[in-house]
């Protein structure tokens, strides 16, 4: 049985383990709350983590739909983009899947002499990281854009009045 089949077979278990690793990036008491409660509305972060890890594994196996991959990554990347993380920490969750793969399969594959299989699959995870990077930067850009737009919206009528004043001034000059 090849690596991909084995991942597919254990995809649910691996998704859980990956989620646990991702939760490990939060303070321990927070992990406890988020681990035990997987409900979307009262625990959106825990829910998003498990959802991402469960959706991404089949997508990595199929590896034919970049858009779907991005879709599965979006919510979690957006969440981590606004949580108190450095960019490297925010995106570390992708590499935690590599950690998991090596933890689960490295010894075995190494013994069988079929390490290339793992390396090949890891390339997909690397690509996943690059997609996540795009999404992360987009999210950060959006936050900055929203800041600017918010300030503009707050003063929309003030600016309008200022412009009116300006036109008055030019009108007077024209006289």
């Amino acid at each position: 049985m090849g690596l991909e089949e084995r991942i597919a077979e254990r995809s649910k278990e691996l998704a859980e383990k990956w989620a646990v690793l991702i939760l490990g990036t939060y303070p321990p008491e927070t992990q406890a709350v988020w681990k035990e409660n997987r409900e979307r509305f009262s625990n959106p972060v825990g829910h998003a983590i498990l959802k991402a890890s469960s959706e991404l594994i089949p997508l990595l196996l199929a590896w034919n739909d970049a858009e779907a991959v991005a879709g599965a990554l979006t919510q979690l990347v957006k969440i981590r983009a606004v949580q108190d993380f450095a960019p490297s920490q925010a995106l570390s969750f992708v590499f935690l899947f590599k950690k998991l793969l090596r933890q689960e399969f490295l010894k075995e594959l190494s013994a069988q002499g079929s390490l290339e299989e793992l390396l090949a699959f890891e390339t997909r995870v690397d690509n996943l990281a690059v997609i996540a990077f795009d999404l992360y930067v987009a999210a950060r850009d959006q936050v900055q854009r929203m800041r600017v737009e918010e300030v503009k919206r707050a003063h929309v009528n003030i600016v309008r009045r200022a412009n009116l004043m300006a036109s008055d001034v030019t009108a007077r000059k024209a006289e």
Binding site: T25, P27, F85, S88, Q89, S92, F95, L96, K98
Partner: peptide, 13 residues
């Protein structure tokens, strides 16, 4: 191992 790299960033508070 990937987490050896990540450990240097200290992602667990």
């Amino acid at each position: 191992k990937p987490d050896e790299m990540l450990r240097s960033i200290n992602y667990t508070p």
